[in-house]
Amino acid sequence: MALPHVVVFGEALTDIVQGAPGQWQGYPGGAPWNVARGLSQLGVSSAFAGAISGDSLGDEIARLSRTAGLDMDFIQRVDSDPLVAIVASSHPPRYFFAGESDLHFDGAKLPQGWLDAAQLCHFSCISLARQPLGDKLVAIARQAHQAGKQISYDPNWRNLMDSAYREQTFPTMVALATIIKLSDEDLRQIYPGLTEHQALAELRALNPKAQILFTRGEKGMVLHTLEGEYEQAAIKVEVVDTVGAGDASMAGWLASGLLGISDYQERLRFSAACASVSCSQAGAHAPTTAEVRALLGSIAR
C-alpha cells in the first residue's frame, strides 16, 4: 500500500458538550484530526499521525478514521486516559481539557519512508501547546521543512496557549510554514492590542513568502500572497453547527492545491464551500467532494 501524500500531526479528542443544563453529548473531534478526515474525504491520500486511547472513545475515533479512508498505520493506540474537551458552554465558549493519551505520540514509530512519500505535513491547535508533544511536533516540522516538504500551520488558538506559545512556538511554526491559516479570533489573541491590519503586517513580516489564508466567519476569507490579495465571500447555507468549519476550509484549501487546481479564486471558492457544507451538518462534519460540488453547482445556477 502506498504511503500517504499528506500527514497531519496533532490531537484527536472527544468533545463532551453540554447543551441544555445537565445534558451532555460526546463528539469525536480535534482540529488536526478534522483536517485529516477532510482531506481524505476530498480525495487526497492522507494520514492522521497521533496517539489515541485504547478505550471506547479511542475506538470511535479509530472507526471514523477508517471510514474516512485515513492510513491507519499512523494512528498509535496507547493505554492512557483519553483526551477530552469538556465544553460547559458554547456561547460564550467555556471549556477545559483533560486526559493525556495524545502526549504519548512517538515519532520514531511512524511508518518507514513516510517522509519521502509525503508532499505536505500539517500542524495545528493544542498539540503544539501540550508538552512534551509540542516539542516533538516542532522537531518533526523542522525535519520536514529541511526535506523540502510543504508545511501548513493553523494556530487554532485555545485557552491553554500562553505567552510562551505566542512568543516562541507561534513564530517558529510561522517561519517553517508554506501555508498559514488563521481566523480573525486567532489574530486578536496572538496580537492583542493591534488592529487587524497591523497584526497581519506583523505576521507577514515573519514569513513574507508564505500563503496566508485569513478566515472571518460569515464575512468570508482573504488570501494573502506575494502576488496580491484575493477575497472570497462566505457561501450562505442554513447553519446547523459551526464546529469544525475552519478545519473544513483548511482541508478544502489544501486539497484543492494538491488535486491540481491552480487558480487562487477557484481554490478559495472550493475552500469556502467546504466550510459551508460543514456548517450545514451537526458536529465537525468532513465534507465530501460530491457535497462540495453540489453546493457550488447550486449557487452557479
Rank of each mutant, 00 (worst) to 15 (best):
E60C: 11
A245Q: 13
I235L: 03
G148I: 01
T242P: 08
E100D: 15
P132I: 06
I299N: 06
A47F: 00
L137F: 05
L115Y: 01
R216Q: 05
R77W: 03
A210V: 09
S89T: 03
D184H: 09
S271F: 11
D186Y: 04
R94Q: 15
L200D: 10
Y27F: 11
L200G: 10
L206D: 06
L83E: 07
D184C: 11
G54K: 01
L200I: 10
G217Y: 12
A144V: 05
I86M: 11
R158Q: 04
E238P: 15
V239I: 14
I212D: 09
A164F: 13
T289A: 15
R267M: 11
A245V: 12
A177R: 04
D247M: 07
L258F: 02
A62W: 10
S101D: 14
I180W: 06
V240I: 08
D79R: 09
E167N: 12
A245D: 08
T288E: 08
L203V: 01
D184N: 12
R188G: 08
L203N: 01
T242K: 02
M72P: 01
W114K: 00
L259D: 03
A164T: 15
E227G: 07
A199T: 04
G134Q: 03
L137E: 02
H104P: 08
A129K: 00
G148H: 00
T242H: 03
G29N: 00
E291K: 10
E185S: 09
L64P: 14
I61Q: 03
E202K: 15
Q18I: 14
I75N: 02
L128S: 02
M1N: 08
L226G: 12
V78R: 05
P171Q: 05
A62C: 13
G283A: 10
L160H: 03
I140E: 06
G257P: 11
L110C: 05
A199Q: 10
L83D: 08
R293M: 15
D241W: 13
Y165I: 13
A284N: 06
A286W: 10
I212P: 11
I16D: 09
Y153V: 06
A284L: 10
A49D: 05
P92Y: 02
T225R: 09
D162G: 03
L13P: 02
Q131E: 12
